[in-house]
Structures are given as C-alpha cells and as structure tokens.
Amino acid sequence: MLPNSPVFPPVSSTLASKVDLLFFFTVGVSVLFSVLIVATIVAFLVKYRRRHAAETGQEIKGNTLILELAWSIIPLGLVMISFFWGAAVFFESSRPPADAWSFHVYGKQWMWKVEHPEGKREINEFHVPVNQAVKLTMTSEDVIHNFSVPAFRLKMDVLPGRYTTAWFKATKTGTYHIFCDQYCGVDHSKMVGKIHVLEPQDYQKWLVGGASAGGAVATGGELFVAKACNTCHRSDSSARAPILDGVFGKSVSLADGRTVLADESYVRESILSPASKIVQGYQPIMPTFKDQISEEEIVQLIRYIQDLKPAGAAAAPAAAAPAAGGKS
C-alpha cells in the first residue's frame, strides 16, 4: 500500500463497524448489479452489431409486462433492505446510552471548544477515555458548523441558537482527526482538531495533570497551533488579526489612541483579556483564553512570540497541514 494514502479509514468506535458493514452490503449489491448490466450490454453489442448498412432491428413480440414488473420489484426489494437496515443504524446512532458521560462542544469560526464533565476545557484537542460512551451536546456561537470524526463515523451539524446531540464509544486508543464538514466561511478547512483516545487511567492522569499531560504540547510553537492562534494570526495575512512576527519589543498603537510597548505583560494580557487593549484597525474578535491555558503555557507562548522574526526571516508554523492521524 502507498505509504501516504490510506484506502480505508480507522475503525475506532462501536458505530464505525456497523456503518462499514452496511456500506459493504450496498457496495456489494451495487457491484453485482452493475456487472450484470454491463455484461449484458457488452454481450448485446457484440451479438447484435450492425452487419450491413441498411439493417434494422427485429421486432420483439410477446408480453413484456412481467419483465417490467420484475425489474421494478426486485430493485425495490433490495433498496428496502437498505432502507430498513440504514434506519436501524441511524436510530441507534441518535440515541445515546444512559451511562454516557456528557461533554459540551462549541463551534466557533474557526475552532472547536470542548468542555469535559468536570469542567475542564480544551480547544481543538479532545481527550476521551476508551470504551466509555460519550455524549456530545453541541451548539455554535456563529454559523452552522459540523462536528465530524471519520474514525468514529460520527457526524452532526452544530447549529447556532440550539443544541444538537451525538454520541460515540471509542474502541481503540489513538489520535484521530476532527473536521468541520459544513462550509462555514474563509478558514473552514482550518477548523480541524485532534481527538485523543486514552486508556481510562491515562485519561484520569490527564484530567488532574493539567493540559500538558496529553504529552504532545511541549513548546510555544506547538501551542500556538494547538490553541488555534494561527487561524487568526498568520504570517502571510493581516486580514483577521495582526501579524505577530517582529511585534515583540515594538510599540503598538491601540484603537483608543494610546500606544503601548509589546512586552511580556502585554502579550499575557492579550491572551487572557484581549478586549482590554484593542490593536488599532482590528475588531475585538480574539477569544479569551482564560481558564483554558496554564501559566506555564502562557510563558511558552510569550517565548515563542518573542522569537518570531519580522516577515520572511523565520518560518512560522502557521498554515501547517494537519498531521496524519490514526492508524488503519
């Protein structure tokens, strides 16, 4: 198999194998059907090819009604199997089991926010225990989004102004993609995240151990991507948010006319209460990261921003494609 191209998605939830089985059934019937028709056509093309220019077809006499009924009723029966089977899978996927843990998901242009039952919050990362039913109650803070985890065959629209629910029970530990599947504006394709399925004891460790217990986050650069700072702050465009490259140590003009020096405390304040000092020419759209980020992480971010050289001099991690996830 080509190293870079899976042919099948990971099968990592209880729902996944059920959807796959149904899918294989319909594919099987479809292939059978198509092969029959194509073979018949090819046979006719050969057998009844025109032999001389003035030839015409031969009239078919007899009762063709039975034939017409047969090829209406047999496909009808097959699609009905597909219908009932599909509806059964669908009903099951829409009824969370009673023992499911309840999580909240918020969609926002262009990030996912998750709240654990204990109140712990994450952005674009989602840690869950394996073999435990998880119920998601979801809403959007702006437009319609769609929360999708292919490895779980899980997908649900996330609507503004109301809740939708979905549930899953992960069956394999690992890291998998979260995608937004509903077109939601400019950075739709960056509204992606990672779901980490952990052993129950690891999940407990992660819960008490602070956000970095997930293991991956080590440096400010990774945090900058993990916390989705890069969806707004990019080194190639200042359309949504100021370019941070080279800003550290410079003076910044604010919307209210003041100027401030971009130092450690300014950056910290920008992260924790962005609304208190608005950069001139920008809308106050930056979300607060209060309660979602530890003091250590703030320091790491500051170090990272401090290191960013003015445009072109250093490569920012922004716009990095999401890394490969899951195993098949």
Binding site: K18, V19, F23, S30, F83, A87, F90, S93, R153, K155
Partner: peptide, 16 residues
Amino acid sequence: TGVMLGTLGINIYVHD
C-alpha cells in the same frame, strides 16, 4: 451511490 446516500446509516457518515 445515490441509493447509498439515501440510506440513513451511510449518509450520516459520508454527508458533506
């Protein structure tokens, strides 16, 4: 493939 998409249990995965 249209029939597959009309099948609820498949649609909920491949939609969009």
